[in-house]
Design a binder for these strands. Structure first.
Lengths: 237, 237
DNA sequence: TAGTGGTCTAGACCACTTT
DNA sequence: AAGTGGTCTAGACCACTAG
C-alpha cells in the first residue's frame, strides 16, 4: 500500500477497516490482527497502522487493550460533535443586534440543591446573577447563574453590569471542565414573565456545570425560546 | 524533558502549552514557536511535539497552517461532545421496558420541503415511516422519517413491522454522515395525540439528516417528551 | 511470561502557503 | 524561494495484562 496523493495512508487504512466493520465482514467483538500484522498486510510501518487504530478507537469504532488486542466495539454509540459558540457570535451570525441586560446580582446562600451541585457549605453566601441576552427585540437567552465565591473570589469585585458572567468566566477562569444537560421545558409563569414570552412556551434548557481543578466553579441554567435557538451538529460516523 | 513514568511526554507538553494559553502568557492569536524549535526546547523529537500540537488543534486550543505556523485559537468556541446511544440502550439503561410500535409505512411523494431536503425529484415516490418507541407505558420517542428510495432501494423490501427504520438504516447503510438540529417545540394537536400527551407539552425535537456518498439518504424528525429525555455531555475545555 | 499496544527517536520527503 | 506543518519509516524500549 503506497501513499496516495489525495489521502494519507493512515486515512486509507482507517476507511478500509471501517468499511469492513460496517459491511459486516468484521462483526462486533471480532478480534483484529495485531498492529504488526496489519503493518505487514498494508506494507507500511507499524506507527502508521497505530495511528489509524488509535483514531478508530477515539471514534468509538474499536476498543483496544494491551495484550488483549483490538476488537470491534459494541455498536450503537454514535458520537456526534456539537459546537456551541459564544452567544454574541451566535446572535451576530444571524444578523441580529445584541444587547445585554443585567437583572440582578446578589450575594446569598444558594438553595439546597444548588449548594449541593456547587459543593459548598450550606448557609455560605455565594454570587447569584440573573441576566438577559437580547437579539433585536426578543430575549434570546435567560441566564440564571450561581458562582462559587470560594473558588473564584475575584467575582466579588465584579458588577456584571456591562459584561455577562459567562463571558467573564470564560476569560478569567482557566481550563474549566464543562458538563451539560439539554432538555425541553415549558415556560413557568416566572420564567415566561422574565423572558417576555407567553406562559408554557417551549424552551430549550441547557444546564451547565463548570469545574476547575476538581472544584465546582459555577452552575448555570440557560433557557432559550425554542423557536429562536437551535443546536446544530455535523456528525462524523 | 524526559519521559516521566506517570505521563507521556506529549501529554506533558500539551498541558504546559495549554497552561500558557490560559494563564495569559500566550494571548489569543499569538504565534507559537515552530515544531522544530519546540522540539529543541523540550529536548524531544519533532514527532512528539507534533502530536501534542495536533491534539491541541483538534481540541480547538490552537489553529495550525503550513508555513503560517501555529497560533492560539480565537476563544469562545466551546466544543461539547454529546453521545447519542441507540434508543433501546437508552431506555434499558434507565430500567424501562422497551416496545416498538409501527404506525404507518407507505410510498408517497414527499411534500415540497422534504423533497428538497432529500434532494429528490418532485413527484417521485419515496418511503414514509411513522413509528413510536415506548418506555414502559409512555411514548419515549416519535419517529417520523422519509427514506430516499433511489439511494437505498432495499427499503422497498422492508416492512419495518418489527424493526425501526433508524436501527435498520444503522445496520444497512454504510458510513452515513449525520447532521442534527436540536430544538424545543410545543406539541401540536396532531403530535400530542400521536404521542399520547397533552397539547402544548414541551418536546425536544431532533431533526436528523443522513448522507451517504454525498447523496441524501434519509430525513427524520425525532420528538421526545421534554421531561423524559435529556441529552448529556461531558465537555473538555 | 510472552505478546500486545503505547510511546519515542532521528531522519526523511512532501505539500502547502506566505514572502 | 523558503520555512512551516503533515506524513512516513525502521527501529527501539516500555507498560500492561491475559494465559
Amino acid at each position: 500500500m503506497t501513499q496516495n496523493a489525495t489521502q494519507p495512508l493512515y486515512q486509507q487504512i482507517k476507511s478500509r477497516l471501517k468499511a469492513q466493520v460496517v459491511s459486516g465482514k468484521l462483526l462486533q467483538g471480532a478480534l483484529l490482527p495485531s498492529e504488526t500484522e496489519l503493518a505487514g498486510h498494508y506494507d507500511c510501518s507499524r506507527l502508521t497502522v497505530h495511528r489509524a487504530l488509535r483514531e478508530l478507537a477515539e471514534e468509538g469504532v474499536v476498543e483496544r487493550r494491551r495484550r488483549a488486542g483490538t476488537r470491534v466495539a459494541m455498536r450503537g454509540n454514535t458520537g456526534l460533535m456539537i459546537r456551541l459558540s459564544r452567544i454574541t457570535d451566535e446572535i451576530s451570525r444571524r444578523g441580529f443586534a445584541y444587547r445585554y441586560e443585567l437583572l440582578e446580582t446578589r450575594f446569598a446562600a444558594p438553595p439546597d440543591p444548588i449548594a449541593k451541585l456547587l459543593d459548598v457549605r450550606n448557609g455560605d453566601a455565594h454570587l447569584h446573577v440573573r441576566c438577559l441576552h437580547w437579539a433585536n427585540n426578543r430575549v434570546f437567552q435567560f441566564e440564571d447563574r450561581w458562582i462559587n465565591a470560594d473558588v473564584v473570589p475575584a467575582v466579588s469585585a465584579q458588577s456584571f453590569e456591562k459584561m455577562s458572567p459567562s463571558l467573564w468566566l470564560l476569560d478569567n477562569v482557566p481550563l474549566s471542565e464543562l458538563e451539560h444537560d439539554i432538555a425541553a421545558i415549558s415556560a413557568s409563569p416566572t420564567i415566561a414573565a422574565t423572558m417576555r414570552l407567553p406562559e408554557n412556551t417551549a424552551l430549550l434548557e441547557i444546564t451547565r456545570r463548570s469545574t476547575w481543578n476538581k472544584r465546582r466553579v459555577s452552575h448555570a441554567r440557560l433557557t432559550y425560546p425554542g423557536d429562536l435557538f437551535r443546536l446544530r451538529s455535523e456528525g462524523s460516523n
